[in-house]
Lab assay of single mutants.
Amino acid sequence: MATGGRRGAAAAPLLVAVAALLLGAAGHLYPGEVCPGMDIRNNLTRLHELENCSVIEGHLQILLMFKTRPEDFRDLSFPKLIMITDYLLLFRVYGLESLKDLFPNLTVIRGSRLFFNYALVIFEMVHLKELGLYNLMNITRGSVRIEKNNELCYLATIDWSRILDSVEDNYIVLNKDDNEECGDICPGTAKGKTNCPATVINGQFVERCWTHSHCQKVCPTICKSHGCTAEGLCCHSECLGNCSQPDDPTKCVACRNFYLDGRCVETCPPPYYHFQDWRCVNFSFCQDLHHKCKNSRRQGCHQYVIHNNKCIPECPSGYTMNSSNLLCTPCLGPCPKVCHLLEGEKTIDSVTSAQELRGCTVINGSLIINIRGGNNLAAELEANLGLIEEISGYLKIRRSYALVSLSFFRKLRLIRGETLEIGNYSFYALDNQNLRQLWDWSKHNLTITQGKLFFHYNPKLCLSEIHKMEEVSGTKGRQERNDIALKTNGDQASCENELLKFSYIRTSFDKI
Rank of each mutant, 00 (worst) to 15 (best):
S225G: 06
P271Y: 04
A230I: 13
S323G: 14
R74T: 14
C264K: 01
Y134V: 15
H236S: 10
I56S: 02
L120C: 05
H212N: 13
T157I: 08
N42A: 09
N308P: 01
T329G: 11
Y304M: 05
L332N: 10
G183A: 08
P330D: 13
N52A: 06
C196K: 02
L96K: 02
N309L: 03
C223S: 04
L260P: 00
R145K: 08
H127K: 03
T250N: 08
D177N: 13
I84P: 01
L44W: 09
L131P: 02
N242H: 08
E97L: 05
P197E: 06
Y273W: 05
L44A: 13
F78A: 03
P249A: 06
L102V: 14
I201D: 06
Q245N: 09
C209L: 01
D75C: 09
A230K: 15
N105E: 03
P220V: 04
D184M: 05
K191Q: 05
G188H: 13
C215V: 12
P187N: 15
L64P: 05
P270C: 02
G241Y: 02
W278T: 13
F285H: 05
L131R: 01
I40S: 01
S317M: 10
A230E: 14
G32T: 08
L44T: 12
Y154S: 11
H236R: 02
K193M: 13
G37T: 05
S296P: 06
L174K: 15
D288S: 13
R92V: 02
T211Y: 06
G227N: 05
N150A: 04
F91V: 11
C268V: 00
C234P: 05
D72V: 08
M125D: 05
D72F: 07
R74W: 05
V34N: 04
G32V: 13
P79Q: 07
L81M: 09
C293S: 03
P316Q: 03
C215H: 00
F116T: 06
N175V: 03
L155N: 14
G262T: 11
L133P: 01
G232S: 12
D101E: 08
C153V: 01
Y118H: 10
I122Q: 01
S296L: 11
D165W: 12
T45R: 15
G300M: 05
Y118Q: 15
W210T: 06
P316R: 02
C239T: 01
K148Q: 10
T211F: 12
E266S: 14
L136G: 01
K129T: 14
L114W: 02
L96T: 01
D101K: 06
V200N: 14
H214D: 05
V305A: 11
H302P: 07
F78C: 03
D86T: 02
G132S: 13
N309H: 13
L60I: 04
A119Y: 00
T45V: 12
M125G: 04
E181T: 10
D248P: 01
G232I: 06
D72H: 03
A156M: 08
R92E: 00
N105D: 04
F66I: 15
V173E: 13
L89M: 15
I163N: 01
E180N: 05
I146W: 00
V173G: 02
T45H: 07
N322T: 07
W160R: 15
A230H: 10
R145V: 12
L155G: 14
S112R: 12
F205Q: 06
E181P: 03
D261K: 00
H290T: 09
T68S: 09
Y30K: 02
N179D: 06
I40Q: 02
M321V: 15
I109F: 01
D248N: 04
L29R: 11
H212G: 05
I139E: 01
F275G: 01
S296E: 13
I56N: 00
K191G: 13
V281W: 00
N242S: 12
G132V: 01
G232F: 03
F115P: 02
S244N: 08
L99Q: 00
F285V: 04
L326V: 06
K129R: 08
M125V: 02
L81H: 00
C264Y: 00
P187F: 12
T107A: 07
V281S: 01
V305R: 05
G203K: 07
K176D: 15
V108F: 02
P316D: 05
D86Y: 01
M83L: 12
I312M: 11
I62K: 00
R41F: 14
V206Q: 15
T107L: 05
R298H: 02
E238T: 11
M137A: 07
G227Y: 13
S54N: 15
Y94P: 13
Q299I: 11
I185S: 06
A198W: 10
R113F: 07
C293I: 06
H274A: 09
P187C: 02
G192M: 14
S143Y: 03
L64Q: 11
C196R: 14
Q216S: 04
N43P: 02
G142W: 00
T229R: 06
R297F: 07
S323V: 14
L64Y: 13
E51H: 12
F73R: 06
N242M: 08
P269L: 01
T211E: 15
S166V: 11
L106K: 00
Y94D: 08
D184R: 13
L174R: 13
P31V: 07
I109T: 00
P334K: 15
H127F: 03
H214P: 07
D165P: 14
H290D: 02
S324G: 10
K310F: 04
Y304N: 04
N308Q: 13
T107M: 06
L164N: 05
E57Q: 13
V144S: 04
Q299D: 08
I312S: 06
E314F: 01
P246V: 05
N42R: 07
Q299M: 08
H236N: 06
T211D: 13
E181S: 08
L76Q: 11
W278Y: 03
Q245W: 09
K191H: 03
A190M: 04
V55A: 05
L63T: 07
M137Y: 10
M125R: 00
N170H: 05
V218A: 09
D39V: 05
C182F: 15
N138A: 12
R92F: 05
C215L: 08
V55Q: 04
K217P: 14
L50T: 02
Y273F: 15
H59A: 13
Q204T: 05
L289R: 12
